[in-house]
């Protein structure tokens, strides 16, 4: 076990734990935001740079500060390491910079985006963004396309987190989509407008932190904040059958995996609770499910339940 201090809070974690995961063990405000890292997806992380933190002391053995900010999702802690996240002006300033970069080519089409209300980029922009964009250039644009019957790709909104690529690598045999081209021209694509057709492809939607990959069966049906998330299960021979139903009255509008406050699928029976496409797209009748009760969405976001008060509080703070 090694001891690390994050924003003046000490925590003991196992050797090899990343700074981000050590912070998640503390929880609350000290946890850096992560747009590309996804603990259930080996190989993810390091790319978006929103989780940058300052290392004020490398370790007890070598207490020198690290000259650059480091990606907390891919930097392992050392015994005696001192990390500054919320308490670092440098982090605040540079994270703001990263947000500005992520929004530079983003269409900001939240009013017509299905992800609105549960979008991590919205949250990030709210926390760290500035009121006005300094990006006056023409934005990079792509036509939305279908990648299969059930998934829509809005490349304009993509922040190239690579999570969906990792989902395909980790959950399916033959990946058919990936990142094509490079630099500013890089895009998620199948190249030949292939359908992504496998039993677990729908999980790409769940891992997408923005509205780049959305559920076609749910498109424009309702804003998520009007829906009631309910925990439910059904017997399924492909997955655990444990999901969240997003309901309006007695109608199921959408089915997703059960996600935690970091937007990651919860473990079910010790394994990540990915759900299959049958559960996600094919079973929208209430009779197909056993409904267990309301799902508490523990996230700092529009869809959070019972958190309106804190929301108003922080908004007022921001205005003042």
């Amino acid at each position: 076990m090694v001891k690390v201090t994050i924003d003046n809070i000490e925590v003991e974690v196992e050797q090899g734990t990343t700074i981000l995961n050590a912070a998640r063990q503390i929880g609350g405000e000290v946890v850096p935001p992560a747009m590309c890292y996804y603990s259930k997806l080996p190989g993810s992380g390091g790319k978006c740079r929103t989780c940058l933190v300052e290392v004020a002391a490398g370790s007890s053995a070598d207490p020198r500060p690290m000259p650059k900010l480091v990606a907390s999702c891919s930097t392992p802690v050392m015994d005696g390491m001192i990390v500054k996240n919320k308490t670092s002006d440098r982090v605040h300033e540079n994270r703001g910079g990263v947000v500005e970069f992520l929004l530079a080519n983003h269409p900001l089409d939240c009013p017509v985006c299905d992800q609105a209300g549960e979008c991590h980029l919205q949250d990030l922009g709210y926390e760290h963004g500035s009121q006005k964009s300094r990006y006056e250039e023409e934005k990079r644009t792509f036509e939305p396309i279908d990648i299969g019957d059930t998934i829509k790709l809005h490349m304009n909104r993509c922040i190239l987190c690579y999570r969906c690529v990792h989902v395909a690598d980790n959950l399916t045999e033959n990946r058919v989509h990936g990142v094509l081209n490079r630099g500013e021209q890089a895009e998620i694509s199948t190249y030949i407008e292939n359908a992504i057709d496998n039993d677990f492809s729908g999980n790409m939607i769940d891992v997408c932190p923005v509205g780049a990959l959305t559920d076609k069966t749910f498109r424009f049906k309702s804003r998520v904040w009007f829906l009631k998330p309910m925990e439910a299960e059904r017997s399924c021979n492909k997955c655990s059958g444990k999901a969240v139903l997003w309901m309006f009255g007695n109608e199921i509008y959408r089915v997703t995996a059960r996600k935690d406050k970091y937007g990651e699928v919860e473990d079910i029976d010790g394994k990540p609770g990915w759900i299959c496409n049958d559960c996600r797209f094919e079973n929208k009748e209430v009779s197909k499910w056993k409904i267990l009760g309301p799902r508490v969405i523990d996230r700092h976001s529009v869809i959070s339940q019972g958190k309106y008060e804190t929301k108003i509080e922080t908004s007022t703070k921001k205005i003042n």
Partner: peptide, 12 residues
């Protein structure tokens, strides 16, 4: 290898 691996590669 998978075709997408070649597409990803060649477009880079």
């Amino acid at each position: 290898i998978q075709p997408i691996e070649v597409y990803e590669f060649a477009t880079f």
